[in-house]
Amino acid sequence: MLVTWKYRPRNTFIQRLDPRTRLLFFFCVIFGLTLPDIWDYRVILPLFAMSLTLYLLARIEWKDVKRVWLFIFVLVFMIVGLNALLSGRGGPASVTNTASPVVFEVLGIDVTIAKIWFALTQVVRMITMTLLAIPIPYTMDPNIYGTAFRKLGSSDKVSFTMDLAFRFLPTFARDFTITMDSQRARGYELEKVKGGIASRLRKLAPLIIPVVMQSTVTGEEVIDAMDLRAFGTNPRTWIKADDLRYKFADYIMLGLALILLVGGFVLRFGLGIGEFFIPDFFTNLFL
């Protein structure tokens, strides 16, 4: 087994953006949507359209993400379904408004028009955020994470931890494979591990212990190697820092991000827009 990064250089609008822009944008949308508690479909739908556009602009191949989306859909529908089943609460209080007409009844629970609309809104809202989360590993060069975090203000040491983790990842994946092979050569068969949960977990020890213990020994030498090259003694130069530069498109995207974040609060608390509400056309469908 070889670890392969999902990242591939693609000449797309998204990948030409500074990684910092993309992280900041990501957080602005999430916080602009969730902190002011926006549930108005008229706000969510345009955001969904925007996320979908950005997702498509990233040009990630469908075969790479098929499995992920399948999982996400199952999760979203399970959680939303569970939520609706358990109460329909969690979002705005008006969802449980008993005045909403009951459409049908399942397992003794009244499914109202409000609950159905809420569930639909919730699915779209969750997918809006997921559309922004999924492309990140596919479109951000792993070699630039540390530098990007450094330039976002995290310390030299924390940023370098990130780079060093990326450095060791393929090494440990290879070690894990070797350990797997060497235990199989001793007759160990993972498929045949039987018994209760506890004994099955314990039987994973031959795979986990060698890799972990070897890494603790490796660490001591890596510490020496880094100390001997003066790590952590001065403020560091980040050689790739100059590769990260905000360009015109970055400023546009950052401006947009700021508008979305501030806009969420202004809409909700200044103008009173953004609360959960059921459009008449939807109610009319059932009447």
Binding site: K157, T161, L164, F168, F172, A173, V211, S215, T218, F231
Partner: peptide, 23 residues
Amino acid sequence: EFGTRQVVYGAIGAALYGVLSWA
């Protein structure tokens, strides 16, 4: 304390946790 030691083991722990989660 947060020095070279913590950086190295933080990174090693992260890489292992990442690899084993992926495995």
